[in-house]
Amino acid sequence: MPKITIIAGARPNFMKIAPIIKAIEKARFDSAQRPGKDIDFRLVHTGQHYDKKMSGSFFEQLGIPEPHANLEAGGGSQAEQTANIMVRFEKELQENPADVVLVVGDVTSTMACSIVAKKLNTQVVHVEAGIRSGDLTMPEEINRMVTDSISDHFFTTSEIANENLRKAGVEEARIHFVGNTMIDTLLSNIPNLIDPKIRINGEGLKEKGYFVLTLHRPANVDEEEKLKEMMQAIIDGTGDLPVIFPVHPRTAKILQNIGIDHERLHYVEPLSYLEFNYIVKNAKAVITDSGGITEETTVMGVPCMTLRDNTERPETITMGTNELVGTDPKNLSPYLDKLMSGEWKKGGEIPLWDGKTADRIVSILYQLY
């Protein structure tokens, strides 16, 4: 019976591991296909991000069991956080040895726990491996590169990711093109999405009658003048439609300092996963600097504009509904014009983003271990 330690460090990680845990639990009852073989898993939350919305209801909504351990290693600088996670996870893995450590995505916990596992001679598998932005100023890019350089097996979301790994010298037998577990979670939860009951002038949101905006990256929010220009470009280009902005606390403070305000701009508290995807699904379009949201908008067929100069998810542009606008506020106007005139591209299906990724991952884990 292989023992797998599954790592999650921040809220998006839990969206990615939720379907894997469900697939493991489902496979436990599938004794006809795999007699005498089972997977024993231990879920470890590093506590990298404190998130008040990650309560018991969060785990319940997504069907995730409460973590077996919370290392509570959040806070501090990048180096302090990495060190805290490594020290605490080393103790956790020594006390609860595993055959495999499974990491997802590209947060600090992903890299830190991979290093600890390899130094304790434990196999590492990386879910969402091989994605690259080419931007070494992003901490996530460093995390991806380090994790992929020491992983034993790679579960990938796209052929582009496969090619990135091949170029890095990874042999084909260790690359497993399985799809996207984030999309497993999205598709399984679309029937459960929750209307957050946002009111504008006393009325609820009208389907396709508003924009959703998210901003959190330093390139967009740290320079006050640039942020002011970007917000003005968004207000100028969105016609008479409301712009719903669930505000990250860090961004809220900056916006408060600048004094950006408009009757169509509606700041709301950060939303739960089911609430946020409700407003995305029903939006006219999304303007964002997040990577994960570009995947979700593509699957839901919602136009998306990414305020970044690069992306690690190019398939959302070549096959999906996303466009890479850049961080210069002057770039935004033509994209908004195209959208408002009804000329936005439709996008299509992305291979293996079909809700069955976790089943494929667990099937391969059975073969490997």
Results as ranks from 00 to 15, higher is better:
Thr5Ala: 12
Ile6Ala: 01
Ala8Gly: 15
Arg11Cys: 02
Arg11Val: 11
Lys16Met: 11
Ile17Leu: 10
Pro19Lys: 02
Ile20Phe: 01
Lys22Ser: 13
Asp30Pro: 08
Pro35Gln: 06
Pro35Asp: 09
Leu43Lys: 10
His49Asn: 13
Ser57Val: 15
Asn70His: 06
Ala73Tyr: 02
Ile85Asp: 02
Met86Thr: 01
Lys91Leu: 13
Glu92Asp: 13
Gln94Glu: 15
Asn96Glu: 11
Val104Cys: 10
Ala117Val: 08
Lys118Gln: 11
Val124Met: 07
Val125Leu: 11
Thr137Arg: 10
Glu140Tyr: 04
Asn143Ala: 12
Met145Glu: 08
Asp148Met: 07
Ile150Tyr: 02
His153Leu: 06
Asn162Phe: 03
Glu163His: 11
Glu172Cys: 05
Arg174Thr: 12
Asn192Val: 03
Ile194Ala: 02
Phe211Val: 03
Leu213Glu: 01
Thr214Tyr: 00
Lys228Phe: 04
Asp240His: 12
Ile244His: 01
Ile254Ser: 03
Gln256Val: 00
Arg264Tyr: 01
Glu269His: 09
Pro270Val: 04
Asn282Ser: 05
Thr288Val: 04
Gly301Tyr: 07
Gly301His: 02
Pro303Val: 05
Arg308Leu: 05
Asp309Glu: 15
Asp309Phe: 04
Asn310Gly: 03
Thr311His: 02
Glu312Val: 05
Arg313His: 07
Glu315His: 04
Thr318His: 10
Gly320Leu: 10
Leu336Ser: 05
Met340Ala: 00
Tyr369Asn: 13
